[in-house]
């Protein structure tokens, strides 16, 4: 979803060819995952079908002869997407909670589950921290976002670790 809007946003600066869109996208957003050309053209085809972009053809053949431009409907959609907040998703906690409860229920070491997870989180946080130190401001901001999220998970881990005894009572061990 956000790839379409990112490409739409890039088109707000003026019409572009597919390869140009890919390059600009990779530069601005694709540090971790560069776009495939196929993705660009598939996305453009969808946006075209929905009337959010239009094509300005140049003489010659092939997809790279096409220049894409954003339509008024595209600009309206883009603005709506920007003003719409994202759903905050409690993505990890539910899985981890299940693991901890299951560990307690089956008489396994629930603290070990949490310790292992902490270690894994910290491993990733170290990696991001190193990348941040060696990188530019964009790296710093992107890494910080991930770091704050991982930190939130870790705080939950610590809190759960501190409440294991109570949780054990509750699940009947």
């Amino acid at each position: 979803m956000s790839v379409s809007f990112a490409l739409l946003g890039l088109l707000e600066g003026g019409p572009r060819h597919g390869y140009d869109l890919k390059r600009s996208y990779d530069e601005a957003f694709g540090r971790d995952r560069a776009l495939h050309y196929g993705q660009v053209y598939a996305t453009m085809a969808r946006l075209l079908k929905n009337g959010l972009v239009e094509v300005e053809s140049e003489p010659g053949d092939g997809p790279d002869r096409k220049r894409y431009a954003i339509t008024d409907a595209g600009i309206t959609d883009m603005a709506a997407w920007l003003t719409q907040p994202e759903k905050p998703e409690p993505y990890l906690q539910s899985t981890l909670y299940t693991k901890v409860v299951l560990a307690l229920m089956t008489g396994r070491d629930a603290a070990e589950v949490l310790d292992t997870q902490r270690s894994e989180h910290l491993r990733l946080m170290r990696e991001l921290t190193r990348r941040k130190i060696d990188g530019d401001l964009a790296d710093e901001l992107i890494c910080d976002h991930a770091l704050f999220h991982l930190e939130a998970d870790l705080r939950w881990l610590e809190l759960t670790a501190a409440r294991l005894d109570r949780l054990a009572e509750k699940v009947g061990r």
Partner: peptide, 9 residues
Amino acid sequence: HEPRVAAYS
């Protein structure tokens, strides 16, 4: 006790 500080370790 701050994970982001511990990440420098």
